[in-house]
Amino acid sequence: MAKGKEGIANIRRQSVKEYLRKHYFLYLLLTPSLLLTLIFKYGPMYGAVIAFKDFSPIKGIAGSEWVGFKHFAKFLSSPNFEVIFMNTLKLSLYGLILSFPVPILLALMLNQVRKAGIKKNIQLFLYAPNFISVVVIVGMLFIFLSPTGPVNQFISWFTGEPMMFMSRPEYFRWIYILSDIWTGAGWSSIIYVAALANVDPELHDAANLDGANLMQRIRHIDLPTIRPIMAIVFILAAGGIMSIGFEKAYLMQTAMNLPTSEIIPTYVYKIGLQAGDYAYSSAVGLFNAVINVVLLVTVNFIVKKMNEGEGLY
């Protein structure tokens, strides 16, 4: 019996060696990507240990005193914790709810455009904002929404006075989310457009013969086609729900809108790079990353249960 198992193991080893011998060039092509991932993604993870130490640049990571969960407790008990955490959660959650359906709707509408020339022009118009710098986008927002900007000039015709969009805390989230939808929805729809392009036209022809209208064809043909992609995109978006873009939020901040614009990434930047408290800022960043991982696993589990076993992994 033991000899039989050894023989099977030898056959498997030989088959693996034969496979590697035939396809070694593909693995050579993969090597640079693996090295870059190890160096720039996994390598810096060692630095996360300073979240558990009283880090001193002079002593280094290894020489700094171990303090355990001191910095995490400090953040959780700080008076700013609830405000910063809820600002981050609300901005991410509202952004996910409002922005997730938009690329799907755009892809479904683009799929109904039959003339290739018109479709390409529409796609160019929708994709273009994605390539505008975040700094330029925020600059445009300040210009358009300033008290003397075109938006307030239009509003002043009806109200007689401008609205202070960029300095009122209650407007920050809406401006952030709507501008995100404008810049990213078109680009995000590409993956759905590509999936819908693979739908067999004969399915639509057969549905037309059976008397199905447009909405019925979308519901029973198009949506089932892109449902697995929707599930994966939603899981990834929910898993990164606490990872809001730092640059845009920081650039949009003013002294007046801080009650809603101060989020974990901007707080980490100010504490870590501006105040020089690297250990505490690392603890806050690690806390944020752990929440993202928990959300990713939880949402993937729920989606797999609801989507007949189809999930991210």
Rank of each mutant, 00 (worst) to 15 (best):
194 A>M: 06
259 P>G: 08
5 K>M: 12
119 K>V: 00
52 F>V: 02
222 D>M: 07
302 I>L: 15
214 L>N: 09
306 M>E: 11
270 K>P: 00
208 N>P: 04
127 Y>T: 03
107 A>Q: 02
278 Y>K: 03
239 G>L: 01
17 K>R: 14
56 S>Y: 08
257 N>T: 08
301 F>A: 07
239 G>K: 00
47 G>T: 14
294 V>P: 00
230 M>F: 04
180 D>H: 10
130 N>E: 06
283 A>S: 10
35 L>D: 09
280 Y>G: 05
13 R>Y: 12
126 L>Y: 03
175 I>C: 03
18 E>D: 14
161 E>H: 15
295 L>H: 01
127 Y>Q: 01
211 G>Y: 12
211 G>S: 12
264 I>V: 13
218 I>V: 15
207 A>F: 06
281 S>G: 12
285 G>N: 06
200 D>P: 09
194 A>E: 07
246 F>L: 11
173 R>M: 09
296 L>S: 05
114 R>I: 09
230 M>S: 04
99 S>R: 05
105 L>A: 13
136 V>E: 04
163 M>N: 05
77 S>W: 09
58 I>M: 11
253 Q>V: 10
147 P>N: 07
210 D>M: 08
164 M>E: 14
39 I>T: 13
54 D>P: 06
164 M>Y: 10
69 F>V: 14
190 I>N: 07
282 S>K: 04
40 F>W: 13
198 N>L: 12
39 I>M: 14
162 P>M: 08
245 G>C: 06
258 L>M: 14
165 F>D: 01
54 D>N: 13
243 S>D: 13
302 I>P: 04
169 P>F: 04
139 G>W: 01
267 Y>R: 05
1 M>I: 11
203 L>I: 04
210 D>Y: 01
15 S>V: 09
45 M>E: 12
163 M>W: 10
224 P>Q: 02
72 F>K: 06
43 G>R: 05
266 T>E: 03
33 S>A: 12
184 G>K: 11
136 V>L: 12
226 I>C: 00
54 D>K: 10
42 Y>T: 12
38 L>W: 11
272 G>M: 08
77 S>Y: 03
172 F>Q: 07
35 L>I: 15
224 P>S: 08
249 A>L: 00
114 R>C: 03
38 L>G: 14
196 L>C: 08
105 L>T: 08
160 G>A: 05
96 L>T: 09
253 Q>L: 13
146 S>V: 09
227 R>N: 04
71 H>A: 03
291 I>Y: 03
52 F>T: 01
68 G>Y: 07
